[in-house]
Amino acid sequence: MGRLSQLITVVVVVLISAQSVADDDQSRALQLRQLGEILPLEEILAISRQQIDGHILEVELEQEKGRVIYEIEILDHKGRVWELKFDAANGDILKREQE
């Protein structure tokens, strides 16, 4: 990640927190996506389906050590719930565990 994009991320985070919609995580996701900071959720989901196929139970966007992380809970066809974590910027899988 280049210095410029890091800067933009900081600016965006500042901007988002400056607005009263900071708790509105869908607005944050949309803004980050529009800025090209993160991949569209659809792409992340396509990657996650290659790991585990099932229904999406919950999606959360988290800030971890300067990185934007997608935390996705998936209910597979056998009724098991999985938790997957992806790097939202490039779709790398970071964590995969059964809850």
């Binding site: 995580d25 869908q26 949309l30 569209p40």
Partner: peptide, 10 residues
């Protein structure tokens, strides 16, 4: 005002 379900989809 967008529903949370829309997430990053326009």
């Amino acid at each position: 005002l967008r529903s949370r379900s829309l997430w990053d989809y326009s």
